[in-house]
Design a protein around this nucleic acid. Structure first.
Length: 313
DNA sequence: AATCTCTGCAACCGCTCCATA
DNA sequence: TTATGGAGCGGTTGCAGAGAT
């Protein structure tokens, strides 16, 4: 975000007797640098104390939020990939609005980002379909139509990407969809049929922040990038004087659609993705199920649905 | 070109939970 | 046992930019 511009458009410094000059609103580049450098040298945690010690006129909460949602080096930005969308839909169907929990399974994504995605995309389409996002109708639509469609698109993309120099295995209706590639970007989910509240799943790790290339590691929320870690940096780091150093690309290019913007892992998941538990198991033929969905049988609603589906993707 | 409307998302708010004294 | 403060979570708001008119 170009915090400077946003900050200048409205002076968000709110002063009150009991808030002692605490700043609110968009963060400035200077504030960001101060926070980054302080955490680099002292680690995170004790946010109120941190805010004071760092000389930031912000609440601890504000510092924590800024760090976790924006400044952390392992935060991923950019469009939500198809695989991530699929995962979000699946996990939300399991856990509802447990954003932080869902975020634990999407490395580098924050609960805020996922929440925003859900509200801006998914809820919007529920509205278009004139049904409640928590209704069975909508859940069925997600589960039996949108999610299989997503899988198809993932498969198609994988096949297209793999065509020249890689191998791809895409089995419709089977529990696995795997692709191996040789391209640079390579965080791969192996979302085995073992996802539940206590389970781990594996991530074949490429250049994501928590491991080296081609490492397969058991993934748990505890070792996720989303989980706060005081070890994100070493204890002694050269001060960052310019956010472009920190991000390695101009920070002003923050728009998600701009490929120059900070992207710790270039987001082109060339991946293997295995279905969420029970989603594909048994080789369910979603296509054949569609006509059985009473709700979808109604013509007008069906039209709405397909329009919404196209927009969702 | 100007204005209006919509969209995406960063940031804030209020609440709950948990650890500690 | 209770009080207090830190941390985290989900919901909401407000703004900038994009797109439509």
């Amino acid at each position: 975000m170009d915090v400077k511009e946003r900050g200048s458009s409205n002076n968000n410094t709110i002063q009150s007797d009991d808030e002692m000059d605490l700043r609110r609103g968009p963060w400035t580049v200077d504030e960001d640098l101060t926070l980054i450098n302080y955490i680099a040298n002292h680690g995170e945690g004790r946010w109120n104390n941190l805010a004071r010690s760092a000389g930031l006129k912000r609440t601890g909460k504000s510092c924590r939020l800024r760090w976790l949602n924006y400044l952390r080096p392992d935060v991923r930005r950019g469009n939500i990939s198809l695989e991530e969308q699929l995962l979000i839909l699946e996990l939300h169907s399991r856990w509802g609005n447990r954003w932080s929990k869902i975020a634990q399974y999407l490395p580098g994504r924050t609960d805020n980002e996922i929440k925003n995605y859900w509200r801006t995309r998914v809820q919007k389409h529920a509205k278009q379909l004139k049904c409640d996002v928590n209704s069975k109708q909508f859940k069925d639509t997600m589960r039996y139509i949108w999610m299989p469609r997503l899988v198809e698109r993932i498969q198609a993309a994988a096949a297209a990407a793999a065509a020249p120099a890689t191998t791809a295995t895409a089995t419709v209706g089977s529990p696995t969809l795997s692709t191996t590639t040789t391209v640079t970007a390579n965080t791969a989910y192996n979302y085995e049929n073992n996802l539940n509240d206590n389970n781990n799943f594996e991530i074949h790790n490429g250049n994501m922040p928590f491991g080296g290339s081609n490492v397969t590691q058991s993934y748990t929320p505890e070792n996720s990038s989303t989980a706060a870690s005081s070890d994100s940096f070493g204890t002694q780091v050269s001060p960052v004087s310019d956010l472009s150093e920190y991000y390695s690309v101009p920070v002003s290019n923050h728009n998600n659609t701009n490929p120059d913007y900070y992207q710790p892992a270039q987001v082109s998941y060339s991946d293997c993705i295995t279905s969420p538990a029970g989603f594909f198991s048994g080789g369910v033929d979603f296509q054949s199920m569609e006509p059985n969905n009473q709700w979808i049988q109604s013509g007008a609603t069906s039209d709405n649905f397909w329009n919404a589906e196209n927009m969702l993707f």
